[in-house]
Amino acid sequence: MALRRFRFRRKKEMPDGLWMKCQGCNQLVFKKIVEEHLSVCPECNFHFTIPAQKRIELLLDAGTFQERYADMTSIDPLGFKDRITYAERLSAEQEKTGLKEAALVGTGKIEGRQIMFGVTDFNFLAGSLGSVMGEKITRIVEEAQEEGLSLVIVSGSGGGARMQEGALSLTQMAKTSAAIARFHDAGGLYISILTNPCMAGVMASFASLGDVVIAEPKALIGFTGPRVIRQTIQAELPEGFQRSEFLLEHGLIDMIVNRKTLKKEVARLLNYLAPAS
């Protein structure tokens, strides 16, 4: 009770929008400080979701990202309507994020080395996998193979396969996985980076299929969402359930890397596993 009053007072003293609540520690943290720390909570090291563009800036050498298939957008193949139409939802998401779709793909450099790169943006319809994301990922996997490049994909998706495209979304899981299988068979190297949250159809396909799988700290990662599991088993979930540390402990990922050192670590892995000839 005392704490709540304290927080309230503190918040009231400050102009709106300067503070944000951390999902990791539930504390109010100063927004500016978080931003200065690459959107990482200074109190608990929770890694906030960041836009795709920001991820490109953090991971790739400045100005090296060459986007491919930038003019690819979703259509509404089913004429899907819930309370609003899919088309309306798409426009709203485009307006909100400034993106055309939930994935950006292309080439770029990490410490001078050319790679094939993809990133999904959680802010666009929860980073869900539809025909566009499936096609973009599949194309860059195929092109990484053709162009002899290593592949790095940063995944973050709360929704998994996108409901509004029905089973077409579901089949994108099979499509991307089949492309990765070919890429691996041809000797290609794929580093998958999991960010908060990474769930369901995305996690049950391309995000899981890296030769090396890295997660940012405390990211929610899994198949079924925690809310559904809680409802199903009618019990509270264990502390830290489905977080990166839980996955590491259960042998499901290779390593957890802080955002601050992520680029360096990826470069180190590339140097080990696919040294430039």
């Binding site: 690819m72 979703s74 259509i75 025909s131 499936g134 096609e135 599949t138 077409l168 499509k175 492309a179």
Partner: peptide, 8 residues
């Protein structure tokens, strides 16, 4: 599987 998907 490669042929599944519809978009602009």
């Amino acid at each position: 599987y490669r042929h599944l998907g519809r978009f602009l």
